[in-house]
Simulated assay, not measured.
Amino acid sequence: MPRQSPTLARALENPCAIIRSLGVLSDSWSFLIVREAFLGAGTFAQFRDQLGIASDVLSTRLSALVEHGVLQKSPYREPGQRTRDAYQLTPAGEELKVVMVAMQQWGEAHVPQMQGPRVLPLTVETGERVRAALVDPPGRIVPDTDVAFIRTDAAEAAPL
């Protein structure tokens, strides 16, 4: 298991779930690796080739995503080759789908490109595009203007 930096250790102990999440998904490469996993990448070579990422950076990010339960390793072996690790999303990793859809929505709305999206979130059954939404406990969609972040007593007691 790789040794955690003091900064990461502090982030993971923070009472703020956003800070803890950023401790795990700390940079753009982590999000792009997750995106590629959603697109079917599973081997080191597939991630490296799709992202054009340096091998040492990819190795570090994959190890961190495994350590924090976003990906899991499973051995595989191609004929005539040594055994290697494949990477699969865990249930926690699969739950990042809503985060990725929300990030894509925001990017399309606020940082648009002329050529349109290269990746689309579609339903498996109908092929229709999906959106991320804020949903209340009974399941109703709530407009973002009707949602506020409120500090709790616990938040006031803990530093960022």
Rank of each mutant, 00 (worst) to 15 (best):
A92L: 14
P15I: 01
E36R: 07
L39F: 03
A148F: 12
R151F: 10
A64Q: 11
D136R: 06
L65I: 09
R82A: 15
E78C: 03
E156N: 08
E95I: 01
A132C: 06
V34Y: 00
C16I: 02
S21T: 11
F149D: 02
G69Q: 06
E13F: 02
E67M: 14
A92N: 15
P91T: 12
R82K: 14
Q115N: 13
I19F: 01
A17R: 12
P91W: 10
L122N: 07
D85W: 14
R10A: 11
S28Y: 00
V24W: 02
S5T: 09
V24D: 00
P137Y: 04
A54E: 15
Y87R: 04
A54L: 11
L71R: 03
V57I: 08
L160N: 09
Q113Y: 00
T83G: 03
A133Y: 02
K97V: 13
R77T: 10
D136I: 06
D144L: 07
D146F: 05
L96W: 13
L25N: 01
A9T: 12
A41W: 04
V101C: 14
P6K: 02
T83P: 09
P2S: 10
F149L: 13
G107F: 05
T145N: 07
D56Y: 04
Y76M: 03
P6I: 03
E95F: 09
T126H: 05
Q115F: 11
L122S: 04
W106C: 10
R35C: 01
D27A: 12
F31H: 06
T126E: 10
L22Y: 09
S30N: 01
T60Q: 15
A158H: 10
R20K: 07
D49L: 01
H110P: 03
I53M: 08
P137E: 11
R48Y: 00
A37D: 04
S59I: 08
W29H: 04
R20T: 04
Y76G: 04
T152E: 02
L62K: 07
I53L: 12
G116F: 03
G139L: 13
V142H: 10
V124T: 14
Q4T: 00
H110N: 14
M114L: 13
Q81T: 15
Q88T: 14
L22W: 00
L89F: 08
R20C: 04
E108T: 07
S63Y: 01
I150D: 10
R140Y: 12
P121F: 13
V135R: 08
G23C: 05
R140T: 12
V66S: 05
G80L: 08
L65R: 09
R10Q: 07
F47I: 01
H110K: 11
M103D: 05
L96I: 08
V24E: 11
F149R: 09
Y87M: 04
P79I: 07
V24N: 01
L65K: 08
L120F: 09
W106Q: 12
A9E: 09
D136W: 07
G42M: 05
M114Y: 04
V66Y: 04
L89D: 07
T126Q: 11
M114V: 10
G23K: 06
V124G: 10
L71T: 05
T123R: 15
G107T: 13
L32C: 03
N14Y: 00
Q81Y: 14
R140L: 11
M1A: 15
A133L: 06
D153T: 08
L71F: 15
R84Y: 07
P112F: 11
